[in-house]
């Protein structure tokens, strides 16, 4: 593991892995979206509105996965002081926030025909909105630390504390009576017909590859920023 934490080795790995992940993710997401829109069967009760499932569910999982990634990277940064971990956490925030926003938007569009309302303040919807605001807070905090100077441990602590929302989102439909349905997939099995289940899993894989590709690309950009800044500072020192 430590070998990959070396920025130089990481960069040489990320250089070819980034386009691979992005291309593979784009291909899978396009394929499953086309299947979902044109070939998936209509659902017994929901009819055609079920097709939004193939976007809504993967983005919801990745919105939660993004914060889990921030929390793990923050833990590694706080305990082992890995320089790459702070960069990984910062890189995961933007795609995580975008996926959470897509999940909320598609959920709202789906809620209108399925439930008869765009939005309700129930446990699942509210905790997901809180997650979006946590992302905004994290990004603002990380940016302030970079610009104004300060310990990168501050956003790391925020990332760790915010992880408490992830189990709340997951269990919100089980702890409280909610308008949102309970999970269709569990360790035990699936309440989903195979026509919906397998494309959903493929779409999730595709969105995950996209997520990974975006995180790697952003990590490379952040590393390049740091390198450029160090070089500038060294030049200024030499001139002085």
């Amino acid at each position: 593991m430590h070998a990959f934490a070396n920025p130089k080795r990481f960069l040489s790995l990320a250089r070819w892995l980034t386009p691979l992940l992005l291309a593979g993710g784009l291909l899978l997401v396009t394929a499953t979206s086309v299947y979902g829109l044109f070939y998936a069967p209509a659902e017994r009760l929901q009819g055609d509105s079920v097709r939004i499932l193939f976007i809504h569910v993967p983005t919801a999982w990745l919105g939660m996965g993004g914060w889990s990634a921030i929390a793990i990277a923050s833990l590694v940064e706080l305990v082992w002081r890995h320089p790459l971990a702070a960069i990984a956490a910062r890189a995961a925030a933007l795609p995580g926030a975008v996926f959470t926003a897509i999940c909320l938007a598609t959920g709202s569009l789906w809620g209108r025909p399925a439930w008869g309302t765009w939005w309700v303040w129930d446990g699942r919807l509210t905790s997901m909105l809180v997650l979006l605001f946590l992302y905004f807070g994290y990004m603002a905090l990380a940016q302030a630390v970079t610009r104004e100077g300060g310990s990168s441990r501050i956003p790391a602590i925020f990332g760790l504390v915010g992880v408490i929302n992830i189990p709340i989102i997951h269990y919100s439909v089980l702890w409280w009576y909610s308008i949102h349905q309970p999970p269709s997939l569990s360790m035990g099995g699936s309440a989903m017909a195979p026509e919906f289940l397998y494309p959903l899993l493929l779409a999730t894989l595709g969105f995950s590859l996209l997520f990974g590709g975006v995180v790697l690309a952003r990590m490379r950009a952040l590393l390049a920023d740091i390198q450029a800044e160090t070089r500038l500072r060294r030049k200024a020192m030499e001139a002085a």
Binding site: R44, S184, L197
Partner: peptide, 16 residues
């Protein structure tokens, strides 16, 4: 006001 609540089951329409 009435809101519908969907369950966790996803079943294709039989006729199709």
């Amino acid at each position: 006001n009435l809101l519908a609540k969907h369950d966790e089951n996803y079943v294709p329409r039989e006729l199709q």
